[in-house]
């Protein structure tokens, strides 16, 4: 049995890495901190043309008809690049939820637009306080009383909330739902949407953690103290080796969760909670050690490290913290 990704999945990952290196360098992320909307329509369009945005949308609606196992490595790359755009909300949560739980009318209206990059989708799910990028979203997938709704932008208001990460804008929403916004799927669909959200965030966290680690490894090779690179001291080496260990193993958990969602396995929610709790903790360690090993410079505005430190801190909590997912896992395991 082959547990590895396919050659094509690795090619897509490499293509995503090249794309983000060219189109989403740290200077772009910084520019989005200062931008009024914090979003780049040009980048979103380029992402749609390349195939990121419509990846999970069936081919008959203009997408690529791929699944979570195809998407997981791309989400990691988005984390490595600290991508500001709502790829998680649109491609990993809203689009597949519309595919599985939307009415035929909702699907026909939204899916081709999302795949073409003409419509942005976000989500507001029970248990998650904020809707990311609701100010630019054309459609909101909203959970209300256990039911999902697809609410068009003219039927909801987005109220900006303070965000520590200036390139990740969060909102509360006041939405007007009705029978016409209701999606076909019931509570199961809402539960699956939440699983997708937690899993996708865990995947991005894997990339954030990896980037924090990579930046730190290059820094400690360069920074000298007592006449030698600080990375040659065991106190630093051990910290970073331990970090690599937890980051790598947390990725394995998110890969399994991707498979569990894509194949609708019975242990899907358990796999997702394992992934999100591991990924949040692994990133938290990477975050802590990266800042510690960088020393004072890691705090500064001028150094790029904080772009990932703050994204990581925001995502650790998003769609359930490590503690919340461990509690959810325990209640599921002990209930059965």
């Amino acid at each position: 049995m082959n547990f590895d990704f396919t050659e094509e999945q690795y090619q897509l990952r490499d293509a995503a890495r090249d794309f983000f290196a060219g189109e989403c360098p740290p200077s772009h992320v910084r520019a989005m901190w200062d931008d009024q909307t914090g979003r780049s329509p040009a980048l979103w369009r380029a992402m749609a043309e390349t195939g990121f945005v419509g990846l999970t949308i069936p081919e008959e609606h203009g997408g690529l008809g791929m699944d979570e196992v195809d998407l997981v490595l791309l989400l990691e790359e988005a984390g490595r690049a600290a991508l500001p755009e709502p790829l998680v909300e649109t491609t990993a949560i809203a689009a597949p939820t519309l595919v599985e739980a939307g009415t035929p009318e909702q699907q026909a209206h939204w899916l081709p637009r999302i795949a073409a990059g003409e419509a942005i989708a976000t989500v507001q799910l029970a248990g998650a306080p904020f809707a990311v990028d609701a100010h630019v979203a054309d459609v909101l997938v909203l959970e209300r009383d256990g039911r999902l709704h697809a609410v068009p932008s003219e039927r909801f208001n987005a109220v900006a909330q303070p965000s520590l990460d200036g390139a990740r804008r969060v909102f509360t929403v006041e939405a007007e739902t009705g029978p016409d916004t209701a999606m076909a799927g019931g509570p199961d669909a809402a539960a699956k949407a939440y699983d997708r959200a937690a899993w996708a965030t865990a995947s991005v966290l894997g990339g954030v953690a990896h980037q924090l680690l990579d930046m730190t490894v290059s820094y400690v090779r360069e920074r000298e103290q007592f006449g030698r690179p600080v990375g040659s001291f065991q106190a630093i080496k051990h910290k970073l080796a331990e970090t690599l260990l937890v980051v790598e193993t947390s990725k394995a958990a998110t890969w399994y969760a991707a498979y569990a969602i894509a194949t609708d396995r019975a242990d899907r929610s358990e796999a997702v909670s394992v992934a999100k709790s591991y990924a949040s903790d692994a990133e938290r360690k990477a975050n802590l050690e990266a800042l510690q090993c960088h020393g004072g410079i890691g705090f500064t505005w001028e150094h790029d490290l904080h772009l990932w430190l703050k994204r990581g801190k925001a995502l650790e909590q998003a769609y359930g913290s490590a503690t919340e997912h461990r509690a959810r896992l325990a209640s599921r395991l002990f209930a059965s």
């Binding site: 094509e8 090619q11 897509l12 293509a15 090249d18 794309f19 060219g22 380029a46 043309e49 390349t50 195939g51 990121f52 990846l55 690529l64």
Partner: peptide, 12 residues
């Protein structure tokens, strides 16, 4: 340009 995902899949 960047190769599109569709292009990557079709290359095979």
């Amino acid at each position: 340009r960047y190769p599109s995902f569709k292009g990557i899949m079709a290359a095979k």
